[in-house]
Nucleic acid binder design. Structure first.
Lengths: 216, 216
DNA sequence: CTGCTCCTCCCCCACGTGGGGGAGGAACCG
DNA sequence: CGGTTCCTCCCCCACGTGGGGGAGGAGCAG
């Protein structure tokens, strides 16, 4: 069964772009659109989408309030992926605090957008490292750390990530944890997916920026 | 109390030069010399120097093995400052991995040589990420940053490293800097060599641990 | 001018990495 | 007792990465 998505953005152009990108995926289906937060709640109730791609700034009801309303009133609510233009959007923090599962920059590459959506659909939180760094930059890293914790790394995955931040290769991690290389690869893949990282370097960056590890 | 130094180099000329430079300092005392790594261990035991200035390439026992032996067998071992002719001497990195505290180019200015020796004597490592991390941990990262700068990354290499710490792949860095991928690869290789990193992940870790970039 | 560093780009090639699957077992929980 | 998650390991495969070379040109100092 496909991942169903509700697009919420006041700009038709953005909605069209997201739709084009997402509908190109065989397993993703855009089932509805809304141009303002006020229209979200009834649409969510009727369509029951897996994910809501929600713009932060909208005329009547912004993405933060819309997120709050949906999460407060809907049982088994959809995942909320906050979409924003600016890396330093103050509202993003509020949206995350309101319970959003991740956020996404509009200028992200299509592949990143698709991956982000899949990640939140799978129940994993995510913040893109590039945005995460700014996030941690402007507000201290408590919230970023919290977001990371919501990514819910399993204990084993956390072990692996920790060794990744020590610069170890997969074989080295395997030896260190007394595992097979294939096992380590599995954990690494899980870590990358949960952190929204494309490769181990981005994962290490995310670990630093989120405070999962600290320099020194 | 003065800083006591043991000089280890197979060329008498080099030993004489180092001795002249170091003895000109009131607080530094050269207490011994050796012309090969094989003579280091007994001398260290007898003289208990604060610092060993160790050449990398020597006939019988090279600086790498000598470093290993000393660190493995001596309690409260001296600081090891590796001395080399070439900036890109692979053996240097092996020595640093073996636990040396820093390295020094023979063509460095006398003031730099003195400074380097004082730095390692004070317990601060130079240049190597694995050592830099402890440094940054205990003292803040000013000195580590300085050490990294002494690694003499060219401006272009610094550009590339910065983009590496943003999680970019080589093609992405190439686009960002308007270069060919091969060019980026060259720079990346140079960065890895200079930082003693095996892959880009280790380089990014070094960048964080040295304060080249800071979380947030 | 000569020599040097730096920047740019090219070749080849071994290897690790990451994505796509899947599968069995253990532990926990409803 | 199932169902779930987690941990473990396996397959195949495309790709980026990093190491080994080299080469030409720009800029600069001796």
């Amino acid at each position: 069964m496909p991942i169903t998505v509700l697009l919420v953005d006041d700009e038709p152009l953005v909605r069209a772009g997201l739709r084009a990108i997402l509908e190109a995926q065989p397993d993703i289906e855009v089932t509805g659109e809304a141009s303002d937060g006020a229209a979200v709640l009834p649409l969510v109730r009727r369509l029951r989408p897996d994910v809501v791609a929600m713009d932060v700034r909208m005329p009547l009801l912004d993405g933060i309030e819309a997120t709050r309303v949906v999460l407060r009133t809907v049982t088994e609510p959809p995942k909320i992926l906050v979409v924003t233009t600016f890396e330093n959007d103050e509202y993003v923090y509020d949206a995350l605090r309101a319970g959003a599962d991740g956020f996404l920059l509009k200028r992200a590459a299509p592949a990143e957008i698709v991956q982000a959506l899949r990640t939140v659909a799978a129940g994993d939180s995510l913040l893109f490292p590039a945005a995460l760094r700014r996030l941690a930059a402007s507000r201290g890293n408590e919230r970023a750390r919290a977001a990371m914790e919501r990514a819910a790394l399993t204990p084993r995955e956390a072990d692996v990530l920790r060794l990744m931040t020590r610069g170890m290769s997969n074989p080295e991690i395997a030896r260190s944890l007394r595992l097979g290389t294939e096992t380590v690869k599995s954990h690494v893949s899980a870590v990358l997916a949960k952190l929204g990282a494309r490769d181990r370097t981005q994962a290490v960056i995310a670990a630093y920026e989120s405070g999962f590890v600290t320099p020194g």
